[in-house]
Simulated scan of single mutants.
Amino acid sequence: MKMLRLVAALVTALLAGCGSATATTGDPAPPTVGEAPQQAYAVGVRQFVVDPGGPRPLPVTVWYPATAGPPVVRPDAAVAAGRFPVVIYSHGLHSLPELHAPLTTRWAAAGFVVAAPTFPRTNLRARNFTRDDVRNQPADGWRLIRHLVRLDTRRGDPLAGHLAVDRIAAAGHSAGGFTTAGMFTSGHSARLRAGIVLAGGGLAGSFAGPVAPLLFVHGGADPIVPESVGRAAYARAPWPAAFLSLPGQGHGEYLIPGRPGFPQVLATILDFLRWTLYDDRAALHRLPRDAQLPGVTTLTSRLPR
């Protein structure tokens, strides 16, 4: 709990003064399908472990829309009224969920529950680190989804009744992007309605099963996962998809508040999530405009108009 409060305090400091993540003085109205929330929520954060006694215990950090009140991010804050779509967020190699909090908390403030697992063999503190374990992480993502489906009906749990478990997206950065792609295989549940691959690519068997729109985001000068890898995955995706490129940028500096391209990346992701998980057509129509800034971003799109 002490670490959770420290992370919340640090993220709150990062978010201070940012309109996209600033809580309103009163709670927004409960969300409805067809129109995503337009006001920002305060953000709560909690942690739990999936399968704590199993061979692959999975610690999970969850950010969620909370009732109004300072600070912006509060451990175990009361959940806001309504049901919220869910985003499964996967970290990269030698990383942790809390290192992505400046991004994921903004998604929670926009009306999404973000559940981020700490993968057992690829996280920053893993005792037996191995990059080959990425191939097992899509199954971890599905374990988490099944856990959230059960949790939504668990009497007494703060999130029970607040999870729209029929409206789920998967997202991830770097190895987490490959993990995300690997969740979209033949026979995957239609609960998983969209995917966001940040500086990643496809895994064997990716992009099969029920239709799920995809968003790819990649730096044009990425030295770790070349942009060509991401574009190859985009070209292979059989569903509606878009590719947001940041020419001259590397492996993820555009995910850091204050860096060039961050406003466009954040706005594009939120438009995409609002469209795919809230069925908000206005967000889909805004996306091409929000995505592009001459000299900073370029957008290639096969999304419907």
Results as ranks from 00 to 15, higher is better:
Y41R: 12
F243H: 08
R281T: 11
G92S: 09
L6N: 06
L163F: 01
F112D: 10
Y64K: 06
A101R: 05
F119W: 13
A235S: 05
G252Q: 09
L4Q: 08
G252F: 11
G209F: 03
G172C: 03
R154S: 13
T268V: 11
F184M: 12
V225R: 01
P65V: 00
K2R: 12
L203S: 04
K2Y: 02
A208S: 12
P213M: 06
S186C: 09
R131H: 04
Y89D: 14
A181P: 07
A194N: 02
F178I: 14
A101G: 04
P71D: 07
L151H: 03
S245F: 09
R135Q: 14
L144G: 12
A40I: 10
P31Y: 09
I145T: 07
A235I: 02
F207Y: 15
R193W: 11
A115N: 03
A66P: 08
A126W: 08
G195H: 12
A175I: 00
D132P: 07
A208C: 09
A190M: 03
V217T: 00
G34Y: 04
F178E: 10
I196T: 04
A233R: 04
R135S: 15
P257Y: 06
G172H: 08
A233Q: 04
R5Q: 15
L15S: 04
P85C: 06
G202R: 15
Y89S: 11
P294C: 00
D76A: 00
F216R: 05
P31I: 02
D279A: 14
L287V: 11
G161L: 01
G92Y: 07
N123F: 00
E253W: 15
G176L: 10
G252P: 04
P37C: 03
V229N: 04
L159A: 04
W107M: 13
L287D: 14
R281G: 06
G156R: 07
E98G: 02
C18W: 08
A232S: 11
Y254C: 13
R281Y: 10
H147L: 02
R305P: 15
T24N: 07
V134E: 12
D279L: 12
G202D: 11
R127V: 10
V114L: 00
A170P: 01
L99D: 13
V87H: 08
R302E: 13
F112I: 05
D140K: 05
R46E: 15
V43H: 14
R74K: 10
P71M: 07
N136W: 03
T61R: 13
L198G: 00
L246Q: 01
D27Y: 02
T118D: 02
L270P: 05
P117L: 07
S174R: 13
L246K: 05
M3N: 10
A9P: 11
H218F: 08
T105F: 06
P31L: 11
Q137C: 12
G219Q: 04
M183K: 02
L244D: 03
A282H: 08
I224R: 07
I145S: 03
P71H: 04
G248A: 02
G26A: 15
R146H: 15
A242L: 01
I88Q: 12
A116T: 03
E98K: 01
R155W: 01
A101H: 01
A164K: 00
G250I: 01
Y278M: 09
L93V: 07
G92N: 14
T104L: 10
G182K: 05
Q264V: 13
M1S: 11
R146Y: 15
D280L: 13
